[in-house]
Design a protein around this nucleic acid. Structure first.
Length: 338
DNA sequence: CATTCGTGGGC
DNA sequence: TGCCCAAGAAT
């Protein structure tokens, strides 16, 4: 039995040692980074690469150094500041989370897993990550990187299962160091190993600190047992919505609906700031019914539950009080965007 | 539990 | 060039 314990200890030492030498210098890992900064980073990093998050994160923390700062502005400003990070609904949820932090936690990011989990946009991973990385708690953090490292190192398979399983959570919990501070470093280290070395495609096994104990390598690098399902994009409503959102995000003035149907040249004027995304939208040349479906979807359900809910808040961003907030009042049949 | 939800860089 | 996929969450 001491063998198993020693093996686990060696695993901890190898990976955390590698982390100490190799880890990227990311601002949200700095000890001076606030829990709010960590929360913002975790939301932005959901399905989004680090290099794309970095500049936006800096802008957000400078503009909104506290949850109260963000909660004090219209949600549409969060969507605008989100830029092109993708999944703009995350901006809405982060804004809602800031409001909840102000109203229910006196403006302080909560420090327990269940309280974090109750925040909009915060799921099991993010709740554990913030509790661990912002507050030093011992949590079972399981993200796509950790899942992949576990799959190869322990299970001997090329990729983790399509969906997170209870077995993976148990395995992660069993690997977690007992000490709080060490467990935090371990979580960060395994994530970093998955991000930099044990990557999804073309893993850099020669550079791996635990290559000698990897079950997948020992098994001769067997291929995945299933084919990951691709994410449809070209020709879909999502693509059209994305183009429409890009126009609205950059608009500094009301955008007539006609602009979505006709090239700016047809309108006899050049729209300030939104020419490029508008041109991109027209280049897509979506079928009229698809464009209408996308526009209608963006304005449905009283600006709240449309498919890309984020867009619904854009009208609030630059509105100065007069117009109503409901689609029926301010946007009869999606005539004018604001 | 399977789907849906943007975006852009790398291979 | 086209495809893969990146610190997931909500439904």
């Amino acid at each position: 039995m001491p063998g198993a314990a020693d093996g686990l200890q060696q695993l901890h030492d190898s990976i955390t040692g590698w982390f100490a030498e190799t880890a990227r210098d990311l601002p949200w890992r700095d000890p001076s980074c606030s829990p709010w900064g960590v929360l913002v980073s975790e939301i932005m990093l959901q399905q989004t690469p680090v290099v794309r998050v970095l500049p936006v994160w800096h802008e957000w923390l400078e503009r909104w150094p506290t949850p109260a700062g963000l909660a004090g502005e219209p949600a549409g400003e969060a969507v605008r500041a989100w830029g092109r990070l993708g999944y703009p609904r995350r901006a809405l949820r982060l804004h809602a989370a800031a409001a909840a932090i102000v109203s229910e936690h006196a403006g302080k990011v909560p420090d327990t897993y269940p309280e974090l989990l109750a925040l909009p946009g915060v799921g099991s991973y993010t709740a554990a990550a913030v509790a661990a990385f912002a507050y030093g708690r011992r949590e079972t953090v399981v993200d796509t990187n950790i899942r992949r490292v576990q799959a190869r190192l322990v299970a001997g398979s090329a990729l983790p299962a399509p969906a997170l399983t209870a077995a993976e959570m148990r395995l992660a919990a069993s690997l977690l160091p007992d000490d709080d501070a060490t467990s935090v470093r371990w979580n960060a280290a395994v994530m970093e190993l998955g991000a930099l070395v044990c990557t999804a495609r073309v893993p850099k096994c020669p550079a791996c600190p635990v290559k000698d104990s990897c079950a997948w390598l020992a098994a001769g690098e067997p291929p995945p047992s299933y084919v990951p399902k691709g994410q449809a994009w070209h020709g879909t409503d999502r693509q059209v919505r994305g183009a429409v959102v890009a126009v609205l995000r950059l608009a500094e003035a009301p955008v007539p609906a006609e602009m979505f149907h006709h090239a700016p040249a047809d309108l006899g004027f050049a729209p300030e700031g939104i020419g490029v995304p508008l041109a991109a939208l027209h280049r897509l040349n979506p079928p009229p019914e698809q464009l209408e479906r996308s526009l209608a979807g963006l304005l449905a359900d009283g600006w709240q539950n449309c498919t890309t809910a984020a867009t619904a808040c854009l009208p609030d961003a630059r509105r100065h009080g007069a117009a109503g907030s409901g689609a029926s009042e301010s946007c009869p049949g999606w005539h004018t965007f604001w």
